[in-house]
Computed example of a mutant assay.
Amino acid sequence: MLQQKIDQEIKAAMLSKNEARLRGLRAIKAAILLAKSEKGASENLTEETEIKVLQKLAKQRRESGDIYQAQNREDLYKIEMEELEVIEEFLPRQLSREEIAVYIKEVIERTGAASVKDMGKVMGAANKELAGKADGKTISELVKQLLS
Rank of each mutant, 00 (worst) to 15 (best):
S115D: 14
I87C: 00
L34H: 11
A125N: 03
E83T: 01
S115I: 04
T138Y: 00
S42D: 09
R26I: 05
E129A: 15
L142A: 01
K52A: 02
E47D: 11
G124M: 13
E82V: 07
E85D: 12
Y103L: 01
R61Y: 00
D66Q: 10
A134E: 04
E47F: 09
I67F: 10
G132C: 04
I51V: 11
S115C: 14
L45T: 00
M81F: 09
K117E: 15
I108L: 15
S64W: 08
I28F: 00
E83D: 04
L45M: 05
E47P: 06
K39A: 09
K133R: 15
L130C: 03
I51Y: 11
E47V: 11
I79N: 12
A126P: 00
A114K: 15
A27Y: 01
T49G: 05
M119N: 11
I79K: 15
V102L: 07
E99D: 10
K56W: 03
E106Y: 08
R61S: 02
F90P: 01
E50F: 07
A126I: 05
Q55P: 00
E82S: 12
I79C: 10
L84E: 06
E109G: 07
S42M: 06
Y103W: 15
V107T: 07
E50Y: 08
I108W: 13
R61Q: 01
A134I: 06
K56G: 08
Y77H: 13
I79P: 02
L34P: 02
E106D: 13
E38I: 00
F90D: 00
E47S: 12
E43Q: 08
E80I: 07
I51F: 04
T46Y: 07
L142N: 03
Y103E: 10
I139L: 08
E80H: 13
S115N: 14
I139C: 03
R110T: 07
S140N: 04
K137M: 04
A113Q: 05
N127V: 02
G124I: 14
L76K: 14
I100L: 03
R110I: 09
E74Q: 14
